[in-house]
């Protein structure tokens, strides 16, 4: 093998290694959620059976998003148990009347308008079809933020190549368009960017 082929091959393989392994690690930085919230514990102990029990739609169809602190305060006025997250919740947020600054995995850019009501009520989509089975998890997932765009890794999807993704992975515009096309639903700019 000639010296030129070896040099070229070395550069080629090094680039592949950097691009597939080092680059994703360098691109995303991990941030901790302010609280260690456990969906599974709440579902088991509090009798919460549906996502909509906490992540409800308001009367006007607007999605309420993450429950506000007064919802948590209904049960956690005083500490339940002795865990550190419980102490943080009660002392740092509920008693001070402050909202928890959750890092939202699926937060979209400000120029995107998305109606949960239309997708849930009219299209009959289940929460897990877009959000996965996070509601059954016992630990908060790592929140990874893109250093350049500033958005969560969930928007692009866990797979850096976007190949072999699970159906719920990825919330980019192209993912919305693909889903609409599969269901033969109109795709127009002003549907989401109004």
């Amino acid at each position: 093998m000639s010296r030129r082929s070896v040099t070229f091959g070395f550069g080629f393989l090094a680039a592949l290694a950097v691009g597939w392994f080092a680059f994703p690690r360098a691109l995303y930085v991990q941030r901790a959620q302010p609280l260690e919230f456990r969906h599974k514990t709440h579902a088991g102990k509090s009798g919460v059976t549906q996502c909509s029990d906490c992540h409800a739609l308001r009367e006007d169809g607007e999605f309420a998003g993450i429950p506000r602190m007064d919802t948590c305060a209904a049960c956690h006025t005083d500490r339940i148990g002795t865990s550190e997250p419980e102490a943080t919740l009660v002392d740092n947020y509920i008693k001070k009347g402050q909202e928890t600054p959750w890092l939202v995995y699926s937060r979209q850019p400000a120029n995107v308008w998305f109606s949960h009501a239309i997708h849930m009520r009219r299209a009959g989509l289940k929460c897990a079809e877009c959000h996965g089975t996070y509601g059954e998890s016992d630990q908060p997932r790592a929140y990874q933020v893109n250093r350049i765009s500033g958005y969560s890794r969930d928007i692009w999807g866990r797979s850096i190549s976007r190949f072999r993704r699970a159906p719920h992975e990825g919330m980019k515009m192209s993912d919305c368009e693909d889903c609409h096309r599969k269901r033969s639903i109109e795709v127009g700019c002003l549907g989401c960017h109004q």
């Binding site: 550069g11 393989l13 680059f23 691109l27 500033g150 958005y151």
Partner: peptide, 26 residues
Amino acid sequence: TLGGGVTTGLLFTPVPWKLLDDTSIW
């Protein structure tokens, strides 16, 4: 030659496409 190998190799990674996407959002 090394630079050529690196450039060719990068084209087979997500780096250029992902950087293009992230920069446009930035």
